[in-house]
Amino acid sequence: MSKSLSYSSITKKIVLSLAGLFLISFLVVHLLINMLILFDDNRELFNAAAHFMATNPLIQVFQYVLFFGFILHIVLGLIIQIQNWLARPVRYNRKGYSELSYFSKFMIHTGAIIFIFLIIHFANFFVIAKFGHIDPITYDSGNTYEDLGLLIIKLFEDGIYVIFYVISILLLGFHLDHGFQSAFQSLGINHSRYTPFIKTFGTLFSAVITLGFISIPLVIYFF
C-alpha cells in the first residue's frame, strides 16, 4: 500500500487504465455468455458455457488474474481519489461548473456503487456456484451441468432485484463511457485523427454492453 502510494500519479493512472481496459475485455466475455441464456428455453447453451468457464484449467488460472485486475483497479481508484480529496482541503462555495461529460466527475461514485453491486452479485452467483450447491440438470445430449441458469432466472423474477440490477448496470455504462476514452488518454493516445473515433466507439461500446446486460433481466422478468 505505501509502495503504491509512492508511485507517480501518471504510473498509477496508466496501471488503472490498463486494469480498466482488461476488465472491459472480461465484460465482453461475460455478456456473451450471459446472452446465451436467451437463446434456448432449457438453458443448455448457457449452462454448458458456465460449466466450461468453471472447469477449464486455463480459465481457472485466468480467474486469479481477473481478481487481481479488479483489486488493482479498485485500490488504485481509491488511492487516487483520496489523494484528490486531499489536494483541495478547502472546498469552493460555488460548485465547479464544467461543460464536459457529467459523469466524468463521478467516477468514484459510480465505481463505488458498482463495487457494492459486485459484492452482491458475487454472493448471489459466484459464491454459490463455487462453494454452495446447485442442482444439476441432464440434457437430451447426455451432458449434465449444474443449472446455474435457473438460479439467474429465479433471481430475475424478483422485481426489486431487477431494478437494482438495471440501475447498477446503467451506472456501469456511464463509468465505462468515460473510462474507455479516459484510459486511452491516460495511456497517451490522443490524436486528432483517432480520438474522435475512440470517443464514439467508447460510447457505442458502453451502450451495447449496458443494453446487453440490461436486456437479460428485462426479458426474463417481462416474458
Binding site: 501518471i10 489523494q83 486531499l86 483541495r88 464544467s98 476514452q181 479516459s182 491516460s186
Partner: peptide, 11 residues
C-alpha cells in the same frame, strides 16, 4: 507538492 491526480474530466 500535493497536486491531485488527473482523472481526465478536461475541466
Amino acid at each position: 507538492l500535493g497536486f491531485g491526480n488527473c482523472s481526465n474530466t478536461y475541466a
